[in-house]
Amino acid sequence: MELSPLPQIMFEPLVRATLLEDLGRAGDITTDAIVPADASATVTLAARQDGVVAGLDIAACAFRTIDPGIEIAVARPDGSRVRAGEAIATTHGSARTLLTAERTALNFLCHLSGIATATAAIVDAIRDHKAQIVCTRKTTPGLRALEKYAVRAGGGSNHRFGLDDAVLIKDNHIAIAGDIRTAIRRAKAACGHMVKIEVEVDTLDQLEIALETGVDAVLLDNMSPEQLARAVAMVGGRAVTEASGRVTPATAPAIAATGVDLISIGWLTHSAPILDIGLDTV
């Protein structure tokens, strides 16, 4: 599926806020003291390790927010796989701008590329199965749209963007409501026909009750592959099945082999290591 770019209005305020955080009260005093105002330079954004690119538009925005005249030639667009040492993009313009915006640009680019790279590793691990890899709401505050975009760049899909997307009845909702049936019935009564309802279960007995009451999706939480296979058979296509918990590139194939539709992973957005990308003068 083609990767659609994020509209600039979604990330430009974040980039501006991040630049302001870095520039502080006096600007880049190091660069301004050393680099002549009229100096120009060409730099390359290059991968230091193998991975998947995500966040080039955000990095470009960091440079062009300081100087709209900065020229950027993209060699490996978002969603591309890169090898260590490979150039991702070349940037030319004011040397002061390139140095001042460098860290902000790289912070976004390395972080988002790290998410895309981690996602791609899981997607590759389950390529022989139908399951899709999806992220969660466990995102860095303020960066959810960007991090979920990075998951898409890595070949994954997105779960809810917010609490208003769909109903997801979790264990604490059930505990306060009293039981699964009550929680589901209340959700159905309160939400319109366009709103999907998913319920989290951690036992097959809970799953049976959820199916009897009627839901659109079931979140099979921390079940073993054997339990997941039984759960998928019980569902029999009556609801979307989503597995969650203890998912790594090593465990994902066995989980996917159970026939679940989705595998959700929180650490993709909250704990994926960065992809090491550097800025080198040409």
Rank of each mutant, 00 (worst) to 15 (best):
A189Y: 13
V74G: 11
V199Q: 01
D128T: 14
S224Y: 07
G51V: 00
A54W: 06
F161Q: 13
I176C: 12
Q206I: 04
G79K: 09
A60L: 06
T65I: 00
G236M: 09
T269R: 03
R64C: 04
R25G: 08
I88K: 05
P77W: 06
A150S: 13
G55W: 02
A256P: 02
V167I: 15
L3M: 05
I66R: 12
L6H: 10
L19E: 05
P36T: 11
A46T: 15
L228K: 08
Q132Y: 06
T104I: 13
I209C: 04
V232A: 15
S157N: 11
L109S: 02
G278L: 03
D276V: 00
E2I: 08
D179W: 10
F11Q: 14
V247E: 10
T91W: 06
D261F: 05
I274R: 01
R230C: 12
A257F: 08
R48W: 10
H92W: 09
A39S: 15
P225L: 12
S271D: 08
A62D: 01
P77R: 06
A73I: 13
D22K: 00
D57V: 04
V201S: 11
H193S: 15
E102A: 13
V74E: 11
W267F: 12
H92S: 15
A187V: 11
T139Q: 09
A229T: 15
P68G: 07
I263R: 06
I122W: 08
P273I: 14
F108M: 00
S94D: 14
S4D: 10
M223H: 04
A39Y: 15
L262G: 07
L14C: 02
R96V: 06
M194K: 10
E147G: 05
E21G: 00
R96I: 06
I274S: 02
P77G: 07
D261M: 05
T139W: 09
I29R: 08
G162H: 01
A116Y: 07
T90Q: 14
V218Y: 09
M10T: 14
D280P: 03
V15E: 04
L143Q: 08
G245D: 14
T18C: 03
A75I: 05
I58S: 02
V282R: 15
G27Q: 07
S113Q: 01
A256M: 07
V215S: 14
G245N: 13
C110V: 01
A121W: 00
L109R: 03
V201G: 12
L23K: 05
D32K: 04
V82I: 11
I29T: 12
D165G: 02
E208R: 15
A257P: 08
